[in-house]
Design a protein around this nucleic acid. Sequence first.
DNA 1: TTGTAAGCGTTATCAT
DNA 2: ATGATAACGCTTACAA
Lengths: 340, 340
Amino acid sequence: MADKAEAVRRGIPTLEEVATRAGVSRATVSRVVNGHPTVRPEAVESVNRAIDELGYVPNRAARSLASNRTQAIALVVPETAARIFADPFFASVVQGVATTLNDSDYTLTMLIGSESNAAKTRRYLLGGNVDGAIVISHHTGDHSYKDLGQVLPVVFGGRPLVDSPGAVVVDVDNVDGASRAVTHLIGRGCRHIAAISGPQDMRPGVDRRLGWQEALLMAGLTPGPEVVGDFSTESGLAAARRLLELDPTVDGLFAANDQMAMGALQALREAGLHVPDDVAVVGYDDSFFSSTIEPPLTTMRQPMIAMGSELATTLVALIEGRPVDPLTLLRAKLVVRASA
Amino acid sequence: MADKAEAVRRGIPTLEEVATRAGVSRATVSRVVNGHPTVRPEAVESVNRAIDELGYVPNRAARSLASNRTQAIALVVPETAARIFADPFFASVVQGVATTLNDSDYTLTMLIGSESNAAKTRRYLLGGNVDGAIVISHHTGDHSYKDLGQVLPVVFGGRPLVDSPGAVVVDVDNVDGASRAVTHLIGRGCRHIAAISGPQDMRPGVDRRLGWQEALLMAGLTPGPEVVGDFSTESGLAAARRLLELDPTVDGLFAANDQMAMGALQALREAGLHVPDDVAVVGYDDSFFSSTIEPPLTTMRQPMIAMGSELATTLVALIEGRPVDPLTLLRAKLVVRASA
DNA sequence: TTGTAAGCGTTATCAT
DNA sequence: ATGATAACGCTTACAA
């Protein structure tokens, strides 16, 4: 057990020492530290001076033990996501969360949730180590921490395929994004707009497909042919070839992500078609390679840092009992480059 | 103040409840939980059963308060780094740290250290909130947390320009990496090997330059011309043009990073030179664009995840009083693509 | 407005 | 090998 001598040596005075120096009781110091309103100004003053002089820093563990709050927030990232950390998606979300929380009184604890330690993670979360959690689920529909929301304030980043009842979610609006991407194609004169959709068992796959249809509908155009891919470059290549067979008059192509768009670009090149003059192509995600491929890809950029920020502020509100929107939708941004 | 009823409702039994159920004292339960050897097997057995049945999870705050250890580690990332989080460098290091720590008993707290909250960060670190810290300094020589090492176990990721005395550091070996990159050029027949160096006020700039010279020296070749760039694509473009003026016989080019290599590629194209036949080019960092540009770039890949891992294990060793190397150097990996 | 004092759930010292 | 019991540093009724 550490004795007071050590604390002193390490320069960490206790609240009691502050109290003594300020000539008040520990309770009063505590009140000042926590911004309690009912303290005489002079007392506040004297306590603050003592705090400064002593370099007092509240002991988090003691505070947490006494108040049953931890002032800590967990960020749970599925392992599959961490592995593909190259994916700027997560990096940016984490950045948004971290910077936002940095300006608050909460601390960020990172958890990598893998199959092997799922139980450990749950125990950690339920073991009173944090006041709340942010769970980021990738594009997949995985929401294995769904039920956590009943017990602990939780905000999810990204929606599962089917909305879960009481969950608080922050997500990007894929329907709107896709719709605006396709509207851009329409705006530049495309009339036969095909789609390479993503897997229909993933929310973004479904939603982006919906957006494509919606934009077409609103413009009074009949949808061009559609092929479903798996978000890989190869599937985009194959899909585009098929699309050209199905309808050689296609003059616009919406790919549900940039990987597939990149594959499609290759197929169009093979077919001797010029992008964007013969076929305009727009992708989705603004992947790292999108600006460097030939031609540079027009695409939708997702506001990942903003999403992290929003996740953080929403969770803090939830923890502190303020009302929160059960669903916050963020708008993607159209990035116009050479392909459309 | 939370009462016991709430704890029960939330399903978080205390050590005392476990003790009661197991028919032993709290002290014994504590011993079992902490793997203390001097407990009768039967007691261990009965305590463990009680723990299972009750779903007991130790309260971190209480444990920390009593033991004066937090089992938490801070990861301090400079804000400048966070901002350019697109940089997979940090993402990977964080991943390495997080996954490694996930298998330990330590928790990872992320701190974004900005100018504005430097004091706050220091207070946090010194306020007994963590048992140790990992400080990642980017390629810059910034080591503003240098002195922290005196007070708290700290491991630095990346070395400053001038080595700091007692610091524990994990870094990549830029001299070795550059040397091997250049050796690859020599191996494929290059004899007039020029360099586009990085800023000489940054450690990697200096070290990679050293590696270039070293490899040449060992092969008995005289160094080709050298121009110093600033790690940007534009500077690489300008530098390569200049290089070609200085010595038109150059047949190999070592660029201290991929950005500059990419610029150089453009200059060579302009000059009507073929890569790699006329001039072989090797870069450094294996940046995200390196595999997609034309021609795909041969480069050195830095082991960032491994670095994160190493940082974590080193810090844990340091905290637990085991001996640690003051300097761990990680080897970069040569990635051979079309440019050399 | 302020102080007193009872916890918060552990660990660790000291007997036994 | 085990059990009392005193910390650990703070919050928060409750009293004054």
